[in-house]
Amino acid sequence: MKEKEYSDIFSGFKGAQTDLIPILVRIQDKAGYISEQSVRQVSGFLKMSENQIYGVASFYPKFRFTRPGRKSIKVCMGTACHVRGGLFLSEAVGWKLGIAIGQTTEDMRFDFQRAGCLGCCTLAPVVKINEDVHSRMSVTRLKEILEKDD
């Protein structure tokens, strides 16, 4: 991210500690992850140490510290999805792409995450790929989607 993009984000805030989480949310929305550079920038703006910022950011499962792939695969791990076989979907991604949760493929095509609950439990099990929710998924359908070229 460029200087300008940071200052754009910061301009909506006063610079108090209470702004930390909303700022991190916006940076992650924009850049896809929280980089070392982002932490330094936030540290300068909020007058907090980088350690403090990492301390807060790493507490919340939402924040990630590695660069995402072009397609983000989020397998829902909510209870309804679990009961309807969500775990198998999550493993299928693992064996198909050879990456573990939180990792990105070497060619930067995919990254793989688990989501707490996507809030559409009646459609379980669901997988979210970028902004699209795929409902009532199966291992075979997921495999087909992953094999399709982007």
Binding site: L20, I21, L24, Y60, P61
Partner: peptide, 19 residues
């Protein structure tokens, strides 16, 4: 908030609001 189950607990939630 950034979504953590424990933040449903009142004092944890307050911590999270405070950043």
């Amino acid at each position: 908030g950034a979504g953590a189950f424990v933040c449903g607990e009142e004092t944890a939630l307050i911590g999270s609001v405070e950043g």
